[in-house]
Design a protein around this nucleic acid. Structure first.
Lengths: 199, 199, 199, 199
DNA sequence: TATGAATGAGCGTTCATTCAT
DNA sequence: TATGAATGAACGCTCATTCAT
């Protein structure tokens, strides 16, 4: 979120991009806390001072990377589906793919969110957007009679999103194995049954 | 100049406890990263150096607090229940109570787990213990015919534990409201239905 | 934040040199142990952190100063001499001059060698080089019949080097007087006679 | 050099001795600088505070150990000898034996003398006493016509003492081998010849 | 724009010494 | 005497940020 993006020359834009790329790599390898500005500039093959030509702080680069990440996590929508169960399956698979692509950076996102209040806010907003979308789907399905009307749609969306999100986090960032197939099948099944959808 | 002594005098044990208590308070208020040893010693009303009489590092106090915390999160078992659904409800409520008691410190636990590999390992082990216990229950219910036999018990336990755990984390640490009643009811309902238990 | 860089700009090289110079002065005045990094940076009129731009530790500056010192103690060779006795006299005077120039730092060299094993090793190597050179001369003189062949040349070189070295150390660092003439004459005479050379 | 030795009870004297013994061991193993009061008290199996019951500072124990050491290095006199050469040989052997017994502590003596001005003074006085005794012997031998009268007796004594002392230091503390025979023979021979004594 | 040297506040840790019991 | 807990000044090192060129 640079204040003066417009003013960048072609060359400047390239340097900026090199720094962003390098920062992502280093953050993923070392974590935010252990990353030094030197690590980033060395990786980007630019001078130490050049970092501050484009970003005011270490947080700033990270925020921009996270913005791009959230964008990427949101835009890859699955094709439309015939039934709610298929819809759920499609969304879960798409989310899994996006998470897998970005797992290393997602780990850093969790890290930074635990000590940077501002960033925690952004993360919350991003999550709320997801939850809200799910809640709308559940409400729709309740109106259609496909889902039990006694469920609180917002709360159910929260809980199911937490299940999927945290399961993927633990699997892809911490102690998952090579095969996520069973995990994904289980998530699909649990979600569908929890909502009372026909398998 | 004893280093993390085993044998303590009565007086020494008291001072050590004061430091632990103070550390917990400060960690909860400032987070692990922003906590300075001075903050802890000032709060405990002991000299700066006294911290190091009892703990070799800031990590060490935290680890001990976390051990006590895990202990507390594990030992408060609910009364026995008649049906699986009642059992789930009981476990969830007990876990919620324990989480609520310790929410502030749990937030720090998440923080430290994101950058301290050793601690992440301990946390993983603690989580695995919980999951394993749930998996055993699910297997039992499957043998009894109460739960669909096609579900992978270990994976289902993982996912449902992730749901409950992360929901409580988000609610109690981040953006929950004063009333957790609906959340708990939703968690109970979703868990029971996901497993195919009669409401 | 470069760590002990090889490539330096002109300006960087100047600053580095200022720090080295200041370090030598402070070491000579206070000794290695009582020297604080602040003392050095204050003397050099640079910021505290600038010390660490060029040297990783206090030991590192000292090692570099010692390397230069050993270089200086080694390279000032006396003019060639006609007789062994004249040769001895020439070497002794040259060594005395070099020692006098560097007496304050030599004192610190002794200090550091008593507690830093790595440095003691370097010092030993430097001494061995000197002893070996003397041993070669003694062997040559033995072949020429000028020196008694029953003497162990290596051991004699060791002992005589110890005599000269330690005498100068005690004289120039500890309790010598203003006039070293008698000392030098005595060292020349004792060395020559000990080897059985004609006065 | 305790101020209140007289007031020690039998039990107190024993504790004090235990501390002195332990201190010597630890100093020898770790050096003065790396020795901590705890190391000493642990080794002596006394309470931390007991150290300060008997010695005001770390330096104080060391000074007392050094006093005893100097005493031991001085009092073991060789049997009377017939000729100056035999006398020299006898003194050198006795000094070698004493040095060998105390080599580890002598190393620490050198260490402390490099940074403690007060102790350097004591060491100087001890050395002066030795040198003076040698100078007297040389003067006597000069009067007897056994040694060349042109030699400055004080200066020669200084130089020859430096030779023996430093040779033994380097041999026993730094890089000597198991067999000191050749070294001692060389020292005897060099000393005798340097003074012009008949072998 | 690009460079890399300069800055200095900040913090963890050590350990000799004191003191209450 | 003996004990061991309590004290806190001291110092090395880090590293984000600034600045001169």
């Amino acid at each position: 979120m640079p204040e003066a993006v417009a003013a960048l020359t072609e060359r400047g834009a390239r340097t900026r991009e090199r720094i962003l790329l390098a920062a992502r790599e280093v953050f993923e390898e070392q974590g935010f806390l252990d990353t030094r500005i030197t690590h980033i500039t060395r990786r980007a093959r630019v001078a130490y001072g050049s970092f501050y030509t484009y970003f005011p702080t270490k947080e700033a680069v990270f925020f921009e990377l996270a913005d791009r990440l959230f964008e990427d996590m949101t835009t890859h929508e699955p094709a439309t589906a015939a039934t709610p169960a298929e819809r759920i399956r499609g969304v879960n698979r798409a989310y899994y793919e996006a998470y897998r692509r970005n797992a290393r950076l997602m780990a850093i996102v969790e890290q930074v969110a635990t000590f940077n209040e501002e960033f925690a806010g952004r993360r919350r907003a991003h999550r709320a957007w997801h939850v809200e979308r799910s809640a709308r789907a559940i409400r729709r399905w309740q109106r259609d009679g496909a889902v039990d009307a006694t469920l609180d749609p917002r709360m159910a969306a929260r809980a199911l999103a937490a299940m999927v999100d945290h399961s993927l986090y633990l699997w892809l960032v911490h102690d998952g194995g090579p095969d996520a197939g069973t995990l994904l099948d289980t998530l699909d099944a649990l979600t569908a049954r929890a909502l009372g959808l026909p398998g």
